[in-house]
Amino acid sequence: MIRNFFRKFYLFFIFVLLYAPILTLIVYSFNASKTRAKWGGFSLKWYSSLFENKAILQALSNTLLIALLSALIATVIGTMASVALNSMKSKTRTFWMSMTNIPMLNAEIVTGISLMMLFIAVGNFLSLFGGSITFGFMTILIGHITFNLPYVILSVMPKLKQVNMSTYEAALDIGASPIYAFFKVILPDIMPGVLSGFLLAFTLSLDDFIITHFVKGPGVDTLSTKIYSEVRKGIKPEMYALSTLVFITVLLLLLIVNYKPKQKNNAKV
């Protein structure tokens, strides 16, 4: 009895520790008073002032666009890469899998700085021919695709391994071209993996700060870099509201990613 109580209490305690900061943030985002020192009653005014702030809305649209595009492109490239990896012999596959995993294990700051250096180097090279690289939307997009790729591969690969390859051969056998067979037979089978890879990539891109910080140009911001620069000037309660929104969006996406395959299994039974 007591043991049971402590077990539950312990779990509760851990989750309080985990979520207390975010809860505080969410509560304060509804605080009518501007100071953190006291509770001035419930209000949505920070939310409404947030949506009147042009710079923030611009950052929001950048964030969503980059998240969507980078997730889409990473999903396409990652799925193709998985197909190639899957057809390799196991030794070569292990090698290339480790290679693709490195960006994921690498400290983000290292990835960020090295991407920045690369863009500068490429820019210098292009300037020899009169070209150039402007840090901005494109560089952020490329950066996000880069760090999203391994996550897509990681979520597609297990599905691909489960695929009964003789269904692919059977499709070829009765007249399908390899491309047609892939889209008609393999893709539907690995779709849950592709979708969760896409959502994972979207989420990661949405809340990335460090890499974005290094590869963004002046004047172009995503929400996370915008919040950072706003906060440096002095914390405004709008930022609580914005952070709350970012948190809730990411939470919802994660819930979708995690619950999707389960529902599929239930439907089958």
């Binding site: 009964n164 003789s166 056998d173 539907p188």
Partner: peptide
């Protein structure tokens, strides 16, 4: 045309 050992039907 081939009939495969593991049936290889398109499950979807």
């Amino acid at each position: 045309n081939t009939v495969f050992q593991k049936y290889a039907l398109f499950t979807h």
